[in-house]
């Protein structure tokens, strides 16, 4: 049975090797690169924490950090909130399935396509948004070149894409809620808001944590839609950390600095994930 014992390790080996070679070693190497000044071609020069100190002096980085925070906060405010709202209301109206499909469609198309669609929606002359505004007697705006309007315009495009996902998860959560307490509330004459606030929402806590964490992590990593819609412009005003990392590394070839941004981003995301895992496991103990 030595062969059988050996085979069980051989089963793990290919997957493990792939992950280590293509993901974990590169991740470790990025840490090393982040301590160097490197144009990607010559010999990297060790500069210690130089790249990290550079962050506070670099106004592009600071803008990018601020934009990332705006993305994170407003995706929570729009996408998670609307996802919950839609999930809570959709089963109480006629044509519920039609409405669900409507919110479901954007999640089946890519972020790139979403970006292309909204690029056209926001286009200054022929775009749908400005055409509608002018019909209603308002002046059109250049949505993607005014700062900070461009960031909010892109956040709305992202909201359009992601509400369906949050709706699906909240619908799963709502299914697991027992109906008796909700019925009891109605009989006792609680208002809609009271029922939701004191009965339904507390029971949705675990699933809400999941949605919030997913939304946080996705918006920290936001890249595709910005790359397509503004490419971080005009004048690098709408970049987020992920976009800055890409531009510094593969357009300007400041690979050491790009690596430092990647590490900074990773530390933030890992910290958020850690809090999330801690919250979820803590709650499971209480059940």
């Amino acid at each position: 049975m030595v062969g059988e014992k050996l085979s069980s390790y051989l089963f793990i080996l290919p997957a493990l090797a792939m992950v280590v070679i293509f993901l974990l070693i590169p991740a470790g190497y990025t840490v090393v690169v982040s301590f160097t000044k490197w144009d990607g071609l010559g010999i990297p020069k060790f500069i210690g924490f130089g790249n990290y100190f550079q962050f506070v002096r670099d106004h592009v980085f600071l803008t990018s950090l601020r934009n990332t925070v705006i993305w994170v906060i407003f995706t929570l405010a729009f996408s998670v909130f609307l996802g919950l709202l839609v999930a809570y209301f959709v089963n109480r109206i006629r044509l519920a399935n039609l409405f669900k499909s409507l919110f479901y469609i954007p999640l089946t198309i890519s972020a790139v396509t979403t970006g292309l669609i909204w690029l056209w929606m926001y286009s200054p002359d022929l775009g749908v948004v400005n055409t509608l505004l002018r019909l209603l007697g308002f002046p059109g705006r250049s949505w993607l070149s005014e700062v900070p309007l461009n960031t909010y315009a892109m956040i709305w495009a992202w909201t359009w894409k992601t509400v369906g996902m949050n709706m699906v998860i909240f619908l799963i959560g709502l299914q697991t809620i027992p109906t008796e307490p909700v019925e009891a509330c109605k009989i006792d004459g609680a208002t809609e808001w009271q029922t939701f606030r004191y009965v339904v929402f507390p029971m949705l806590r675990t699933i809400t944590t999941v949605v919030v964490a997913m939304s946080l992590i996705n918006s920290f990593n936001i890249f595709d839609i910005i790359y397509v819609m503004t490419d971080g412009g005009p004048y690098r005003s709408s970049e987020t950390l992920a976009v800055s990392m890409f531009r510094e590394s593969f357009v300007l070839f400041h690979m050491g600095y790009g690596a430092a941004i990647a590490i900074f981003l990773s530390v933030v995301v890992l910290f958020v994930s850690w809090i999330y895992v801690r919250e979820v496991t803590k709650r499971e103990v209480h059940y």
Partner: peptide, 17 residues
């Protein structure tokens, strides 16, 4: 070890890859 490949943002792999 295998699962830890899901926790990092993708940017961390780009330069070395």
């Amino acid at each position: 070890v295998i699962w830890s490949g899901t926790i990092f943002p993708f940017q961390i792999y780009l330069i070395p890859l």
